[in-house]
Amino acid sequence: MAHYEALDGHKCRTPTCWTVLGERRVMGPELISDTKNKVRLIWDRLKAASDRKKSYADVKCKDIEYFVGDLEFLKVSPWKKVFRFGQKGKLSPRFIGPYCILKHVEPVAYQLELPSELDWIHNVFHVSMLRRYRSDPTFIVPTEKVEVSPDLTFEEELVQILDRDVKVLRKKSVPLVKVLWQNHSSEEATWEPEELMR
């Protein structure tokens, strides 16, 4: 007795014998050609589904290459259940770092220089776990220029009004001014209501 028959209590019906009682049984060469046609149809549909999935994946896939000495962020969202990095829930970080690349191990794997508190983690990561670190010196504000009060707040000082505009709402219009703040570049100027700037 076959294992299938022992477990399920009836004989296994193979794809070549999928017939219901009362159907006309196909015999000989017709059975073989019918089975070949069904198998070919199944393979064609599997290939079409595979090609469709591959085309979706290829759109998002891009060749990323990092170099030894680069600083990269490390993705930690898959580890949320294993290890918490400071905050928990929605405020937990998606990336930590940046960390320096020590070695290019394989075409898609890199070895990172991790801090001592992450010693228990293997330091070789797939390229999909890394995110490029782009530092912008214009975003760095020297701390000696900003006077921070003891409660760790500071006052923004208006330097110049760059532009004026009127925002029209349904029942009223609001005059706006584009304000350049101290210790900020012109790209970081904000639109504020004119009445608040008086």
Score class of each variant (00 low, 15 high):
residue 110 Y to D: 00
residue 186 S to V: 15
residue 40 R to F: 07
residue 76 V to Y: 00
residue 153 T to E: 07
residue 60 K to C: 01
residue 99 Y to W: 01
residue 105 V to M: 06
residue 136 D to W: 06
residue 157 E to M: 07
residue 11 K to V: 10
residue 76 V to I: 10
residue 16 T to P: 00
residue 116 S to H: 03
residue 154 F to V: 05
residue 128 S to P: 00
residue 95 F to T: 01
residue 9 G to H: 14
residue 189 A to Q: 02
residue 31 L to S: 14
residue 169 L to Q: 10
residue 102 L to H: 05
residue 57 A to K: 06
residue 49 A to W: 07
residue 192 E to S: 03
residue 127 V to E: 02
residue 196 L to S: 12
residue 174 V to K: 12
residue 186 S to I: 10
residue 115 P to A: 02
residue 101 I to D: 00
residue 114 L to Y: 02
residue 3 H to Y: 11
residue 160 Q to R: 13
residue 60 K to E: 08
residue 70 D to K: 01
residue 18 W to G: 02
residue 128 S to G: 08
residue 63 D to V: 09
residue 167 K to Q: 11
residue 178 K to P: 02
residue 173 S to E: 14
residue 132 R to V: 02
residue 164 R to N: 10
residue 140 I to G: 03
residue 28 G to H: 09
residue 108 V to T: 15
residue 120 W to Q: 09
residue 74 L to V: 02
residue 32 I to K: 09
residue 102 L to N: 03
residue 113 E to F: 09
residue 64 I to Y: 06
residue 175 P to E: 15
residue 160 Q to V: 06
residue 49 A to F: 07
residue 169 L to N: 15
residue 166 V to I: 15
residue 48 A to G: 06
residue 5 E to R: 12
residue 31 L to Y: 08
residue 197 M to F: 06
residue 103 K to Y: 03
residue 28 G to S: 07
residue 119 D to N: 11
residue 79 W to S: 00
residue 153 T to D: 11
residue 34 D to T: 13
residue 125 F to R: 01
residue 162 L to P: 02
residue 38 K to T: 09
residue 106 E to T: 15
residue 144 E to M: 06
residue 197 M to S: 00
residue 161 I to K: 07
residue 16 T to W: 08
residue 58 D to Q: 04
residue 106 E to Q: 13
residue 99 Y to I: 05
residue 51 D to Y: 10
residue 151 D to R: 05
residue 96 I to W: 01
residue 85 F to N: 01
residue 20 V to D: 09
residue 106 E to Y: 09
residue 158 L to N: 05
residue 60 K to T: 11
residue 65 E to C: 10
residue 152 L to D: 08
residue 39 V to G: 01
residue 173 S to M: 11
residue 4 Y to S: 05
residue 5 E to M: 04
residue 75 K to I: 00
residue 188 E to N: 12
residue 3 H to K: 13
residue 105 V to E: 02
residue 113 E to C: 10
residue 59 V to W: 08
residue 173 S to V: 07
residue 149 S to N: 13
residue 198 R to Y: 15
residue 67 F to S: 12
residue 113 E to A: 10
residue 92 S to L: 01
residue 162 L to H: 13
residue 114 L to D: 00
residue 166 V to K: 09
residue 190 T to D: 05
